[in-house]
């Protein structure tokens, strides 16, 4: 096999060689020696997007495409190679998937990638009934850096489990979004001390008017299956008009009792302007037509309506018109 002294290349050229490798190739390159591991960040890997998902395994995802899965592999499995870091056996299952069999804890596994690529964790899809201690330990040690988004998932969580999870979340710096996609038991009560820019609840029957006021610094609020009433919506709009929710861009809540027949004042058929509210750091948008106009004393305008069983509230900006 002909050889090539890669580490003796000039800095720029070595960087260009490494930049042609994908994150899985870079991981394998890093296993060669401490020196090879040391040069991996030359590719500006600090801008790599590192996501964690423990819903369907213990998976680190780099740049949305390259997956590293921590698993126990059957002892009869043929490994591609062993690596000293994490004392593991490694198998490349598909082009974009590396399966790593190791006895190291999930937390060690997570830190390995953050340290190798010198890049922070961006998002966590967190199934609390699995790896709870490992992931919350990571979150608490990562507190100075924080993460962008955290999604709590799982079909059914007990009240105790959800409370412990939210307590851990409260100790974590989340800059962008918190979403809770799991079913929440009846009678669950929680008081938030801080919330990130975006809040999304797929089951929000437990989320009270007091909780909504705790979210008054949020920019985007999505409450599915809410128990908030039309009276609560009116109070919310009154609070907004008085200057609360200073960062709000949109708020929407669904409730089976919301409908335009019962609340015809929640629509202006004369207003045919379609509003298109783009969600920050996301490719999705929210749309509204026939909104009823509302204005603060400072001139800030908003529109609201009921559409289907959704109450929608958009704070208007010049970029909203389609």
């Amino acid at each position: 096999m002909p050889s090539f002294p890669a580490l003796r290349l000039p800095h720029v050229a070595l960087t260009e060689v490494l930049r042609c490798l994908d994150p899985i190739d870079l991981f394998i390159f890093a296993q060669c020696s401490s020196k090879s591991s040391f040069v991996v960040p030359l590719v500006k890997s600090e801008s790599f997007r590192i996501d964690l998902d423990n819903e369907f395994g213990k998976i680190i995802i780099i740049n949305k495409d390259y997956r590293f899965s921590l698993e126990k592999i059957d002892e009869h499995t043929l490994f591609d190679f062993k690596c000293k870091s994490m004392n593991s056996s490694v198998k490349r299952d598909r082009e974009h998937l590396l399966t790593i069999s190791s006895n190291v804890g999930f937390e060690t596994f997570i830190w390995y990638f953050c340290n190798l690529f010198k890049s922070p964790m961006r998002t966590i899809t967190f199934l609390p009934v699995r790896d709870f201690d490992q992931i919350t330990a990571f979150l608490s040690k990562n507190d100075q850096v924080g993460i962008e988004e955290l999604e709590i998932t799982g079909y059914k969580l007990t009240e105790n489990c959800l409370r412990k999870t939210l307590d851990a979340v409260q100790r974590t710096k989340i800059s962008l979004a918190l979403s809770i996609k799991s079913f929440v038991p009846e009678g669950f009560v929680y008081k938030f001390e801080k919330l990130p820019e975006r809040l999304q609840l797929k089951e929000s029957h437990w989320f009270t008017m007091s909780n909504l006021m705790e979210a008054s610094n949020c920019a985007h609020i999505d409450l599915h299956k809410s128990s908030l009433t039309i009276q609560d919506m009116k109070e919310f709009m009154s609070r907004w008009k008085q200057g609360e929710f200073p960062n709000l861009e949109y708020f929407q809540a669904s409730n089976d009792s919301f409908n335009i027949t019962d609340y015809p004042g929640f629509e202006d058929r004369q207003n045919t302007v379609q509003r298109n509210k783009r969600i920050k750091n996301s490719s999705s948008s929210r749309y509204m037509t026939r909104g009823v106009k509302l204005q603060r004393d400072n001139g800030q305008k908003a529109e609201y309506r009921i559409f289907g069983n959704w109450f929608q509230f958009f704070v208007l900006s010049e970029w909203d018109i389609c």
Partner: peptide, 27 residues
């Protein structure tokens, strides 16, 4: 520089760390 470095990077395709050490002369 792009194409020549790509040629060097192609040498890493499908290699294990032990093979990479030999290919790239990495001690």
């Amino acid at each position: 520089l792009n194409v020549s470095c790509k040629k060097v990077a192609n040498m890493a395709q499908g290699k294990t760390p032990a093979q990479l050490r030999r290919v790239y002369l990495l001690p």
